[in-house]
Design a protein around this nucleic acid. Structure first.
Lengths: 117, 117
DNA sequence: CACTTGTTCTAGTAGCACTAGAACAACTAG
DNA sequence: CTAGTTGTTCTAGTGCTACTAGAACAAGTG
């Protein structure tokens, strides 16, 4: 899996990393048992501090998405169950509808957050 | 319109305010020409600094959602056009699907953000 | 004219994100 | 068993953002 971060995004780097793993798992690009890069390696290749990567991994552990063990690294714990196809279709449908109406991304996201609450 | 903020939410107060106005407009609870509370008043009732409220209003102005004029205050500029019913239905459909699969809110939001990019 | 309300400016405080380095503990592989 | 890997924990420092506070000002309202 390829990780990309944008230091100017305004979103914390560790949040960006965690988000990419969440999306990867949901899309099936990351499967149960698969190993994420060692924190030190990933930090090096992204030119970021180790602690930043570790914070992302710990967020994912708190969500139950990965397991962390010394010597073994970060391993994907939960793979998306059920048909994620419907979920992704719903995501696409919403994005399409928003584009059709010209609704700003921020508004759409706020509406979704409100609904998920 | 009733405004609520949560200082412990981790999200900036001015973002919370702006988000509520965006949602209100999209839902038709705020209509074109309607006036938002004066920044000083809203700041008082929320026990927040005036500058915080004004920052929210300025964000909304940058999005073209409200107009700001001295002496008159913040007025809703653009009302949602087209059938927002379909948009809100799509939002509900996505939230339902996520709940059915047990997908975390953060994952759903990340998926949507990715799709909106 | 008095009043309302956004605009702009200065200034200070608190917390978070990120970096840096080090020592340590658990696990893996040879 | 030994050496290497990798997460865990701790301390510490820097920079930026959010928020607060107070004041003077400008444009519009009634």
């Amino acid at each position: 899996m390829i990780f990309r971060i944008d230091p100017t995004a305004g979103v914390p780097l560790y949040e960006q990393l965690a988000a990419q793993v969440r999306v990867g798992i949901s899309r099936g690009e990351l499967t149960t048992g698969e190993r994420l890069p060692a924190a030190r390696d990933l930090a090096d290749s992204l030119d970021v501090n180790v602690h930043t990567v570790l914070k992302a991994y710990q967020l994912l552990r708190d969500d139950g998405l990965v397991e962390l063990r010394r010597g073994r690294g970060a391993v994907v714990a939960a793979t998306a169950t059920g048909d994620t196809a419907a979920l992704h279709a719903a995501v696409r449908a919403l994005a399409d509808e928003a584009a059709r109406l010209g609704t700003s991304p921020q508004t759409v996201i706020s509406l979704l957050e409100e609904q998920l609450r």
